[in-house]
Design a protein around this nucleic acid. Structure first.
Lengths: 337, 337
DNA sequence: CTGAAAGCGCTTACAG
DNA sequence: CTGAAAGCGCTTACAG
């Protein structure tokens, strides 16, 4: 592998000083240099297949043109669209995303965060926020540029892009109520995350608003397994079996479907289930999942836009962007038995 | 945001030269420095919350500790596990993955590749190979370190980690044959990729080995839409309707299911379908998909291992690692009508 | 319009 | 065991 050409090589071939080469190569400064000279430099760069060394540039300018993105787990189908949304706006601006998974582990999260800091990222998009989040608090103290996505913190330290979870849950409850359901339950996500907390609260309120008694079971995690456990508890517990169930997210909903089957019950004939997120292929599920559609791509794009604006000097502080959600009715909901 | 501490700051606080601080902070060289001195440096680093500037280090050492990963599309559910597999071995070695999507667009692919080169990546993992691939050929000419994953090239220029596609297809055909199917078809992936080509060839051979006539329809892409179109063509075409179908991958299989339903046919009662990949949630599909399981996480991990070994000086050249696959029988296959 | 110089934050032969 | 110096590849005030 022959060494790639540097800017000095280009300058030498073009017969100019490397400072001039630098100016010619940078669109922002190429106006400062004689057109003919600039052309010579460009030609030399092309002939040498010159690729700028971004690390050297970053070291000099102290802008890495890199954004750190922290997510719980890339294999959770909701995140790939978020990531692609983020990249769809970063990329045209010359920024690159650096992605790390935390697996909901605080140590992994801190390690990933530090690694990004060491790589001199210019800002962060965090999909890992908890209501009381030490990392977020520390980032705020350090004066870092951060945008939260999906999950917020109780104290609004940074801009947050999220779905209108309350309206989403209300729509789900309304849908079940209109189908005739009167015994409604919620398999809530972890209450230390705003998503779990807000959706749970919205469920209680919506159900109570219909004069009904909300039943809520808290799940340990947004996972299929936790959903199954939660639904098991619900079906094995005392009290009348619920006929309509709103899940904290689609994964929990899938777990609930497993539990329903394991109890020799059918969805939607015996129990209706509504998910949350409308993750990819939710429409291919058995049964096709009625769920709340969240615009994940747009969510990522909007977070990136806010972050870029902030890096450009627009102070966004505690701004919250709430994206509208919509109920998608499919095969997992029906009138109660 | 107060400026983060540099190594000079740490050195000053510890009362040593920055060269000494550098040695003390690096586990590889900390043996060269007096224990007491080293402790002072470490303490100062901790007090100042010192984070090394990896760009500066990389510039000096010309190793970025970064690997470029090029994939077609992160939202294809097969890739997240591959990525996590890659990261599971990169991460303990201090490497980070830089991911770019190409959307099967040659220009985007070249742009992503160049951007990674500009970021001084130490090597590449490419899941975007075509049988004749200009980018791969160019990378070879330039003497870059590359490992191919899933898809190879006709001329073996780089190490390749792939599943045993031929055996996988043979198992699928065998399964359908044993169920009693005698009219077998294949919705093949694009033949300019080794996956499409190899699976198609294996299908023909396996079916012919049973003394049957293979029917093969080529799809334009590994997508739901292409699968639907292909299956439409098959069902609307002349000739007897196939009772057993092997899809080029799960996405094509899902598209085929759509076409089957649109023709008022049922799967598996009228047509059995076998997918390929066992993508996440394939078991939750309607019907649960019988498919060939590919160990995507391990595939990514193995590719990363080979690349790291090569970066450490182990020449791997055209080595191919073939991972065993296994048929997973679920609900989309049954005896023919 | 162009050049010479300094410096971003590190690492590493080279002396001592 | 430690320090002084050079240099990785850039960019950018400062002169001219």
């Amino acid at each position: 592998m022959d060494k790639p050409a540097t800017m000095s090589d280009v300058a030498r071939m073009a017969g100019v000083h490397k400072a001039t080469a630098s100016r010619a190569l940078n669109p922002m400064t190429s106006g400062q240099v004689n057109q003919a000279t600039a052309r010579r430099v460009l030609a030399a760069a092309k002939r040498l297949r010159y690729t700028p060394n971004t690390m050297a540039r970053s070291l000099r300018t102290s802008r890495s043109m890199t954004i750190g993105v922290l997510i719980p787990d890339l294999t959770n189908p909701l995140f790939p669209p978020v990531i692609r949304g983020i990249e769809s706006v970063l990329s045209p601006h010359g920024y690159t995303a650096l992605i790390a998974n935390t697996d909901n582990d605080e140590d992994l999260e801190a390690a990933g965060f530090e690694a990004m800091l060491a790589r001199q990222v210019d800002g962060f998009i965090l999909a890992t926020g908890r209501r009381e989040d030490r990392l977020v608090a520390a980032a705020h103290t350090r004066g870092l540029s951060v945008v939260l996505i999906n999950r917020g913190t109780d104290r609004p330290l940074f801009p947050l892009v999220t779905g209108d979870d309350s309206a989403g849950i209300a729509a789900a409850v309304e849908h079940l109520f209109n189908l005739g359901h009167r015994r409604l339950a919620h398999l809530a996500g972890p209450s230390d995350m705003t998503t779990g907390f807000v959706r749970g609260r919205a469920f209680r309120q919506s159900v109570a608003a219909h004069g009904l008694d909300p039943v809520v079971v808290a799940c340990d995690a947004y996972s299929v397994e936790s959903g199954r456990l939660g639904m098991d508890a619900l079906l094995d517990g005392p009290g009348a079996r619920p006929t309509g169930m709103v899940a904290g997210n689609d994964l929990i909903a899938i777990g609930a479907l497993h539990a329903i089957r394991a109890h020799a019950l059918r969805c939607p004939e015996d129990v209706s289930v509504v998910g949350f997120n409308d993750m990819p292929f939710a429409d291919e599920m058995q049964p096709p999942l009625t769920t709340i559609h969240v615009p994940h791509h747009e969510m990522g794009a909007e977070a990136a836009r806010i972050l870029l604006a902030e890096l450009d000097g627009a102070p966004a502080a505690g701004k919250t962007v709430t994206l509208p959600l919509r109920l998608v009715v499919r095969g997992s909901t029906a009138p109660p038995p």
